[in-house]
Amino acid sequence: MSEHASHVPGLAHHFVNMEQQKEAGTIGMWIFLLTELMFFGGLFLAYAIFRATYPDGFLQGSHLLSVPLGGLNTIVLIVSSLTMALAVYYSQMGDRKKLVGFLSITLVLGLVFLVVKYFEYKEKFEHHLFPALGWYNPDPSHLAVQYQPQVRVFLWIYFAMTGLHALHMIIGAGILLTLIIMAQKGRFTREYNSPIEISGLYWHFVDIVWIFLFPLLYLTGFHVGGGH
């Protein structure tokens, strides 16, 4: 068994066959996503508690965020999820050209997201809205003084959650780059494509986190007016 198993490209020596290796990889990634879920879950818990504690702070705070930019990033991520899904599809079809193409589009979209995020962060820093001691000093015309302490709590949650999310996007972009290089070298075939599928799971998970972040952070105060 093991003698001819070693001739299969991409099969590690300690697995009996490709099926077992693929199953292990998929389950492994799902379990990893479970840990990611709990990791973000701690911040979602903090969000829930503080939102209930400071409803006004969260309304005012969300006015500081740009719904058009947040919305743009939401669309960018959803499109990138589609292109990632298509990349997985074409890897299953064994179409190398389209695989590389869709992986590249996904990577570009991921980078677009990060660039938009960068400008959002930059704007916050310029307005002294980064919630750290010594940095946080919003202009009273921008944010009424009585809301400033509460909004600070909102802002650290905003920075923690989107920052952690952006970190995952950066890691995802690195993974995509690796996959593109490997795909170009023809490493993936119809039979061996689980790295693409597994990375796709990760990318979709990061998308799901954003699906929750967008309404919770950007849209919370949308109905009360304000914003810019």
Binding site: F50, P131, P149, R152, V153
Partner: peptide
């Protein structure tokens, strides 16, 4: 950063 997560003085819990 003293950002007010757990410190009650800064609004944390």
């Amino acid at each position: 950063f003293q950002i007010g997560i757990f410190d009650p003085k800064l609004g944390g819990d």
